[in-house]
Simulated scan of single mutants.
Amino acid sequence: MKVLGVLEANRVNGWINHLGAVDFSKMKDAARYFKILATAKVPIRIGYAIIEARGDGRVEEVVIAKVDRNFAVKPGSVEVHKCDAIATGWGFTPDLTLAHSLGVTTDIDVIDRSVVVHVDAFQETSQHGVFAAGESTGVGGVDLALIEGRVAGIAIAVQRGLISTMDAKNRSVGLAQERSRIRKFAQALLSVYKIREGWRSWLHPETIICRCEEVTFAQVRNVVHDLGASDVRTAKLLSRCGMGMCQGRVCGRIVADVVGAEIGRSATDDELRGIHNRPIAHPISLATLAKQGQ
C-alpha cells in the first residue's frame, strides 16, 4: 500500500499566538506521529487540501491543491492523483438533538459558531437536574469529556444526597483547574485549525451538498436565486437539504453556510440552533407508530 500524502490546509505557525495554551503531552504525541510518517516516507504537505474526489461508484481520483490562509485555491497548484481511498476530516459537530428536546439553553461558540449546551461550573444545564458533559458542551477530546463527566457525577451525587458537600469538595480537588487547562488547549486547537470560508470556492454545480436527498450545490443556489429562498429554513424546505434519514446531522452546518453565502449574510444564531432541532431524535418505523395507536 502506498500513501500519497498527509495534507493539512492550515498552517502550524498559527500556534505562535497560542503558546500559552500548548499541551506539551499532546505535542509529544504529534511528534511521535510525525516520526512514524517520516519513517514510512509519507509526504506531509502543509497548506494543501483535498478539493475534490472523483470516481464512478467508488473513489478513483483525488484532486488536491495548495490553498491560501482563507482556503482559496492558489492558481496553478491543482494536482490530480489516482487513488483507491481517501480519509478526510473537517472537525466535529456535536449532536444536540436530545439537548434541544429537553429545552436546555445553548450557546454559539465564538470561534467557529458551533452550537453547544450551556452549562455552569458543575456541568448543570439551564434545566435543573439535567447535566451535560463531553462534546455537547464544546468539542475538546476524551480527556476533557472525562473530567467534565467526573464534575457532573459529583454534582449529581450531591443533589441526590448520596455524598456530603464536604466530600464533594474533597473529590473535586484540581478538577476545575484541569478542566480549564484542557478547554484552553481545545479552544487554541479550534482557532489554529479553523475551517476558513474559502472552502466554498471548491464547489462545483454538481457537488453533492446533502447526501441523503442527493441535493447538489446547483439546486441549493436555484432555491435562493430562482425560487426566492431568503433564509436557511426556507431553502431546506424547497430543496429538501437536511430532510433525509440523517435529518441534517451531516449536512446541516454545510447547508447553513452555503445558503448564508448565497443570500449575502451569515446564518443567524437561531438558524444555527435550528439545525439541531429534531423533535424526533431517532427514526421511528411505521410499525412502531401503528402499535402506539392501538
Rank of each mutant, 00 (worst) to 15 (best):
residue 253 R to M: 11
residue 266 S to V: 08
residue 223 V to C: 07
residue 274 G to T: 08
residue 124 E to Q: 15
residue 65 A to Q: 05
residue 93 T to Q: 09
residue 200 R to T: 13
residue 27 M to L: 07
residue 19 L to A: 06
residue 240 R to I: 07
residue 17 N to A: 12
residue 16 I to P: 02
residue 163 I to M: 04
residue 182 I to W: 02
residue 50 I to N: 05
residue 152 A to E: 03
residue 251 C to V: 13
residue 107 D to I: 10
residue 178 E to N: 13
residue 108 I to W: 02
residue 126 S to L: 00
residue 235 A to Y: 08
residue 64 I to D: 02
residue 130 V to G: 01
residue 236 K to N: 10
residue 40 A to T: 05
residue 139 V to N: 02
residue 166 M to E: 15
residue 114 S to V: 00
residue 36 I to F: 14
residue 256 A to W: 03
residue 185 F to I: 00
residue 23 D to N: 10
residue 157 A to C: 06
residue 277 N to D: 15
residue 135 E to K: 00
residue 239 S to E: 03
residue 91 G to D: 05
residue 133 A to M: 12
residue 218 A to C: 05
residue 128 H to T: 13
residue 270 D to M: 12
residue 182 I to M: 11
residue 33 Y to L: 09
residue 287 A to N: 11
residue 71 F to T: 05
residue 191 S to C: 01
residue 167 D to Y: 11
residue 290 A to P: 08
residue 241 C to S: 15
residue 129 G to T: 02
residue 177 Q to D: 13
residue 243 M to Y: 06
residue 260 G to I: 10
residue 159 Q to V: 02
residue 276 H to S: 10
residue 210 C to W: 03
residue 257 D to K: 11
residue 151 V to D: 01
residue 220 V to T: 06
residue 120 D to C: 04
residue 267 A to G: 08
residue 20 G to D: 13
residue 144 L to F: 06
residue 86 I to P: 04
residue 203 L to H: 09
residue 14 G to E: 05
residue 270 D to V: 13
residue 103 G to K: 10
residue 16 I to M: 10
residue 54 R to V: 09
residue 147 I to L: 15
residue 226 D to K: 15
residue 261 A to S: 14
residue 225 H to W: 11
residue 181 R to F: 07
residue 206 E to N: 04
residue 122 F to I: 04
residue 184 K to C: 05
residue 192 V to K: 01
residue 27 M to E: 10
residue 5 G to Q: 04
residue 233 R to M: 13
residue 31 A to Y: 12
residue 256 A to E: 04
residue 281 A to I: 10
